[in-house]
Computed example of a mutant assay.
Amino acid sequence: MTKPTAAPSGRSVRDRRELRPATERSGLTCGYNCLFVSTVDGMAVVDTGLGASFLGYGEYIEPLVGQLADGMAGAGLSRSELAAVIFTHLHQDHSRGAIWSGEPTFPVADAYAHVAEVAYWSGPIEQESALPHSAAARETIRLYGERLRRSFEHHDEILPGVRALPATGHTPGHSAILLESAGERLLCVGDTFYDPLQVTNPGWATPWDLDHPASVATRRRILAWAADEQVLLHAYHLPFPGLGRVRRTATSYTWEPIR
């Protein structure tokens, strides 16, 4: 599924066209890959998509989103039994799927977001690129109330085998989620990068990164660690299923998807 996006660095349309001969494309393809995790404390989901009836990106996007419930049903999962919702951050394309109907989509689930994320969206929002996301973020905080655990800090173990790692810059509490089981690891990088172009060019920020220098530093650090450790990555916005590894090149990195 796709949505309108700007150039990878937030550059002008003219600059993006200048990049076209090298990339052979003029836009980005964005997925919305929600990940379900089975833990000894129950089933959890990492991020929840845009939810149904979303017109914020134009009418054409509405039929392409809001498919989380169908996907769960197809996998034999029940919304009423989900134990936990983990948010890498509270942008609307990660949180609205949890609240789009006006009630919690997962009625008995505890919700987890970084303490700085909850604090930021609970206060006055002044950055222009954050404004479209504020309604969904505030509604998520309101609807989940006491079930939104506000105490999670980076490096905390949220659930057994599920740990939050620092990935700030995109938002103040943006977190990567590290899953560990039987000696294997999977790192959910959230919005650390939107497209393989940002893997090859980690210095490119996006208009939705609230702190550009911090987002670039985070991206460089996570890419270096993932390449050195050969950690399997789950990238929320890459084409389904968003799984792959990062390899070092002579001057940067490259994304190798797992089909």
Score class of each variant (00 low, 15 high):
residue 99 I to C: 00
residue 43 M to S: 10
residue 136 A to F: 03
residue 135 A to Y: 07
residue 89 H to Q: 11
residue 195 D to E: 15
residue 32 Y to H: 12
residue 28 L to I: 14
residue 19 L to K: 10
residue 109 A to D: 05
residue 40 V to S: 14
residue 83 A to L: 12
residue 118 V to F: 02
residue 141 I to Y: 04
residue 28 L to G: 05
residue 66 G to E: 04
residue 69 A to N: 11
residue 154 H to A: 12
residue 179 L to C: 12
residue 170 H to P: 04
residue 90 L to W: 05
residue 57 Y to V: 13
residue 23 T to Y: 12
residue 151 S to M: 09
residue 68 L to C: 08
residue 75 A to V: 11
residue 198 Q to V: 08
residue 175 S to N: 09
residue 82 L to A: 07
residue 1 M to W: 10
residue 4 P to E: 13
residue 222 I to L: 13
residue 169 G to W: 00
residue 116 A to N: 00
residue 26 S to F: 12
residue 63 P to S: 05
residue 248 R to E: 03
residue 4 P to I: 10
residue 232 L to K: 08
residue 121 W to L: 05
residue 137 A to C: 02
residue 75 A to Q: 14
residue 149 R to N: 13
residue 237 H to W: 09
residue 72 M to C: 15
residue 89 H to D: 09
residue 15 D to E: 12
residue 244 G to L: 09
residue 25 R to G: 11
residue 253 Y to L: 13
residue 172 P to S: 00
residue 225 W to C: 10
residue 114 H to Q: 07
residue 11 R to Y: 14
residue 140 T to H: 03
residue 253 Y to F: 15
residue 22 A to V: 10
residue 134 S to V: 11
residue 162 V to R: 04
residue 96 R to A: 00
residue 141 I to D: 04
residue 103 E to V: 07
residue 164 A to M: 06
residue 76 G to Y: 15
residue 11 R to G: 09
residue 34 C to Y: 09
residue 8 P to W: 03
residue 127 Q to C: 13
residue 76 G to N: 14
residue 258 I to C: 13
residue 62 E to Q: 12
residue 192 T to A: 02
residue 56 G to D: 06
residue 217 A to S: 14
residue 44 A to K: 03
residue 10 G to L: 08
residue 12 S to H: 05
residue 25 R to I: 07
residue 3 K to F: 01
residue 145 G to W: 15
residue 185 R to K: 08
residue 95 S to A: 09
residue 91 H to D: 07
residue 20 R to K: 09
residue 238 L to C: 14
residue 253 Y to I: 11
residue 192 T to V: 04
residue 29 T to Y: 06
residue 108 V to S: 15
residue 113 A to L: 04
residue 142 R to W: 02
residue 128 E to G: 02
residue 65 V to L: 09
residue 122 S to A: 13
residue 130 A to P: 03
residue 135 A to M: 08
residue 8 P to M: 06
residue 64 L to F: 03
residue 212 H to P: 12
